[in-house]
Simulated scan of single mutants.
Amino acid sequence: DALIAAGIAVRPGPHALVNAQDKLQMRTTLSAAGIPAPLWREVTSAEDVADFAATAGWPVVLKTARGGYDGKGVMVVTSAEEAAVVLSGSNVRWLVEEKVDFTCELAVQVARSPHGQAAVYPVVQTIQRDGICREVIAPAPIDEDTAMQAQAIALQIAQLLDVTGMLAVEMFLTANGVVVNELAMRPHNSGHWTIDGAVTSQFEQHLRAVLDLPLGSTAALAPHVVMVNVLGGDHPDMYHAYLHCMARDPGLKIHMYGKEVRPGRKVGHVTVVGDDLEDLLERGRHAAAYLTGEITE
């Protein structure tokens, strides 16, 4: 706010960014606009959680309003007693949501510029384990109507929040359509496939949008793109594994982030593009597993 008051452009602005930083603010804003979302409620006690569960049913999902990512700050509880343990001694704000019965998880990347031009990428499927995204498949193996619904919702949110730059909208696909899970107002892990698999990467697109330049094409470069995250394991030196993967599969693209290797931490990703989805999945998974030391051949 101080920078804006001093005449400095801040993109995205705080009025937009707060909806990605604060889940209670995001839920309030999107619910008021009629955007599909899980049942939710702000809670301050185990009694509040039990009252909510009387309608939504157990188990329910407790989330901290701020600070959670990659499964942190998100707890599934099955009783008021469990909720009491989670909330005990806490000095942060909480919300509770119904535990959505979903078919798969989706994500949509949208870019929007200050003058209102918007570009939406193909809907992707994200495969999560232990609250961490492990794989991304572009485009998601869903029907065209569902994909169009997901893209339309993402575009609506970008306009509603007056987003500048990249917006990632994470969704659940249910029997009744898509519902919004969370927002990220930045280039996002679920969009890393665009570096090697789209005409315009999400990083270039973000710069174009922030600088108010014409946005680039979001088209994919192949019928299928697979991105597999590389998580830190017990082998901090990945260089020899890196060389092996490059030699074994010259079509593979490996991106390492230069981070300190810690178990479970995202330290890189691999991307493969082509016509055969099953082949791409096998190649991407093999490379990621070799890099982390899960396999040795």
Results as ranks from 00 to 15, higher is better:
38 P>N: 04
16 A>C: 06
47 E>R: 15
75 M>I: 08
140 A>M: 11
119 A>C: 06
163 V>P: 09
116 G>S: 14
111 A>F: 14
38 P>D: 02
130 D>G: 13
54 A>Y: 04
1 D>P: 11
161 L>N: 13
60 V>M: 08
40 W>E: 05
202 Q>K: 07
236 P>Q: 07
231 L>E: 09
50 A>Y: 03
175 A>F: 04
147 A>I: 01
274 G>C: 03
74 V>M: 15
221 L>K: 14
54 A>N: 12
204 E>H: 10
294 E>R: 13
5 A>G: 09
280 L>C: 13
145 D>T: 14
55 T>Y: 08
34 G>W: 13
286 H>A: 06
297 E>I: 03
112 R>L: 07
286 H>N: 08
237 D>L: 02
169 V>N: 09
55 T>A: 12
111 A>V: 09
79 S>V: 00
80 A>Q: 11
202 Q>I: 02
91 N>E: 15
296 T>R: 15
257 Y>W: 10
212 D>V: 02
162 D>G: 11
153 I>D: 04
295 I>A: 06
143 D>W: 08
157 I>G: 03
51 D>M: 05
3 L>K: 12
189 N>E: 01
230 V>F: 10
213 L>V: 08
178 V>A: 01
54 A>S: 14
144 E>I: 10
262 R>N: 10
218 T>M: 01
166 M>G: 01
232 G>T: 06
5 A>S: 07
74 V>N: 10
12 P>R: 11
253 K>Q: 14
38 P>G: 02
276 D>A: 06
160 L>T: 02
190 S>N: 07
74 V>I: 15
154 A>E: 08
81 E>W: 00
41 R>N: 09
102 F>R: 02
136 V>I: 13
160 L>R: 00
199 V>C: 05
239 Y>T: 05
149 Q>V: 09
242 Y>M: 07
103 T>R: 15
274 G>Y: 04
152 A>R: 15
108 V>N: 11
279 D>V: 00
192 H>N: 09
55 T>N: 10
